[in-house]
Amino acid sequence: MRKLSEGRIILLILLLGCALYFVFAGLGYGRNSRLFPVAVGTVTAVLILLDLASLWASGLVSRTGVGAGGSGRTEVPSLTEREEVGYSGARLMRMVGWLLGSALGVGLVGFALTVPVFIVSFGRVEGRASWVACLLTAVVFFIFIVGYFEFFMRIRMFRGVLFGDLLPLI
């Protein structure tokens, strides 16, 4: 519960930073261009501060409590409140790692190689699925992606920087 409370506070602080960025960056634009973002950013920042204040005031995140300006309705429960089982920080980091790894794979060697390798490696490492099931799924999706995008839609899928494609400019 305490971890959840801390996590929610950290998330709210990040969102507050995001809202304040829009306010201060917005002040640098002309009148018409800054009016809406500065107004929305300011209101959002105030709302986040109120939510933070209600969390600090209550001392902990209430399961059914009403925050500042809250209603009598039950709030949307967080994942840990809905599903006590299955959460572990290490597992979450592994999942995020898989996602970032897949992006890195696409960037380096493109979709054609990353898709089957990702499916097989995830299936084997995370669930110890059988080689046959992993390979079959990987082949089906490789054919689907190459067939649908490259041949049917005529979209050239990213080949990866190691195979000569350049990352687009940011």
Binding site: F118, I119, E126, G127, F141
Partner: peptide, 26 residues
């Protein structure tokens, strides 16, 4: 169906789909 096969297929579909709209890696 094992989630160990379901999850990577969802990820693959979303990433390829996200790329295909503008063909931009980012």
């Amino acid at each position: 169906i094992s989630t160990s096969l379901l999850v990577p297929t969802i990820v693959v579909l979303i990433l390829t789909g996200a790329y295909a709209i503008r063909q931009n890696f980012w």
